[in-house]
Amino acid sequence: MNVQGRPAAPRRSWRAALAPWLVHLVLWPPLLVSVVHIIGFTGYTSWISFTSSTLIPENDFVGLRNYNSVLASRNWAIATENLLIFGTGFVVLTTAIGLTLAVLLDQRIRAENVLRTIYLYPMAVSFVVTGTVWSWLLNPSIGIQKLVRGLGWEAFRFDWVVDRDMAIYTIVIAGAWQASGFAMALFLAGIRSVDADLYKAAQIDGAGPWRIYRRVVLPAIWPIFIAVMVILLQYTIKTFDLVRALTGGGPGLATQLPSLVVYDLMFQRGLLGRGSAAAVLMLLYLLAVLLPYFAFVQWRKRRNARHG
């Protein structure tokens, strides 16, 4: 730069001189606290997962011992199997209900707002509350089974929640009850964002309403399908409160999930090392869902940028 002798700028007062620093003083601490706690905590838990820590953290490296024992345990195997059943059932059911409601609500329904409010309210209520109420309804000695028997159908059975084979499906139902309104909201927003001219063009082409949905609208909102499914999948991996309140993981281990295993290992059995290993495994499950999705989002962004 050419700065031949001229005064660069008028002299600044001390306040003006301080101002740029003050900005950094305000700007950085909260950002740093966030960044440090995210990276630091993840790193620390990962480290603990490689140590022999039990009730208090130790700093001796024991390699993959904790991972081996977690992966070899029946508890974890059942939790993973349950996660697969719950994940599949929950995602399919929630997406199906959400999409159905969204398409039906798109038909110029009277009282659309009231219905939407009803469909979505479960998301505003704590899983603890939801789980508690559902546990009563599903409890055979006090809930739906008793109601139906009281109406005269003495042979009626609905005891999934205490049935080892069926208990996991009660979690699916309660989970879908909670989240399907949310899926509906996302789908409806997607359907409403489709270019109105597309509808007109399809109508002029002679397509009936259901064909328009099948051939025009749904193909146009497929990215929303992927987003909804990813969101729901990672809900399932993190699900804790719902199961804790509905079944507590039981009967036996019938509704055990990885998140409960982590809690159990860390705070009930006092095995911090092993609990941390389970937590890291949970994170890996989550990354297995999220990383492909982020890659996909990036790819789409780049592709759109190229075609845009």
């Binding site: 966030s34 706690h37 949970m282």
Partner: peptide, 12 residues
């Protein structure tokens, strides 16, 4: 930090 599971942060 938005999607990091809470379980990863319990011990720290």
């Amino acid at each position: 930090g938005v999607f990091l599971p809470e379980q990863m942060k319990l011990v720290p």
